[in-house]
């Protein structure tokens, strides 16, 4: 199975100059938790997720998320979001991002998602963005993969 057989063929992306308010709206309308950042030639230069935004504006939020202080931190986050609404995506995006080629296999994609603890893997063809793969897509594909089912039957015999 190749990555191109399981990827989500959506190449929605934003430019590094896009501001925070816009990228939040774009992710909401696209129903995505994260979106690749590309240059003027559609080459991937970064990735931004909801998590990256919250982490940048509320650096210790993972530590307080299950505590009572989260409510006050939440108000703080709202304020910060408004304050940073016009700041550019390039301030918040991850730059050194992992990508996978569309002809690579699913094992390689799964390995990268787990090894680097990431949720989205942009898929590339000739250096250009052609899709995105997530652990959810991989799990679904593994479950439905007929090749695997056939191999299991052979093993049982």
């Amino acid at each position: 199975m190749k990555v191109k057989d399981i990827m989500l063929r959506n190449t929605a992306s934003v430019l590094p100059e896009c501001n925070l308010e816009e990228v939040i709206k774009i992710m909401a309308l696209q129903r995505m938790n994260g979106i690749p950042v590309v240059d003027e030639n559609q080459k991937v230069v970064g990735f931004i997720s909801n998590h990256d935004i919250i982490k940048a504006l509320l650096p210790n939020y993972l530590g307080i998320i299950n505590s009572n202080t989260f409510i006050t931190e939440f108000i703080h986050l709202s304020k910060k979001l408004r304050e940073y609404a016009n700041h550019k995506v390039e301030e918040f995006m991850k730059r050194d991002i992992k990508t996978v080629n569309e002809d690579d296999n699913e094992v390689m994609a799964a390995d990268m998602l787990i090894r680097y603890r990431i949720h989205h893997l942009p898929v590339i063809r000739n250096g250009y963005l052609v899709g995105i793969v997530t652990m959810k897509d991989l799990l679904k594909a593994m479950l439905e993969n007929k090749e695997n089912q056939e191999n299991e039957k052979v093993e049982v015999k």
Binding site: L8, R9, N10, T11, A12, L29, Q30, R31, G131
Partner: peptide
Amino acid sequence: MALGFLGGNTGHLIADKLRDYGIITNFWHI
């Protein structure tokens, strides 16, 4: 690759179907 405008649930339904056909989508969602 298909480009254009899509919006709401109908827009997502169209995008999903196109991807199922094997078409890459890059619509601006309104």
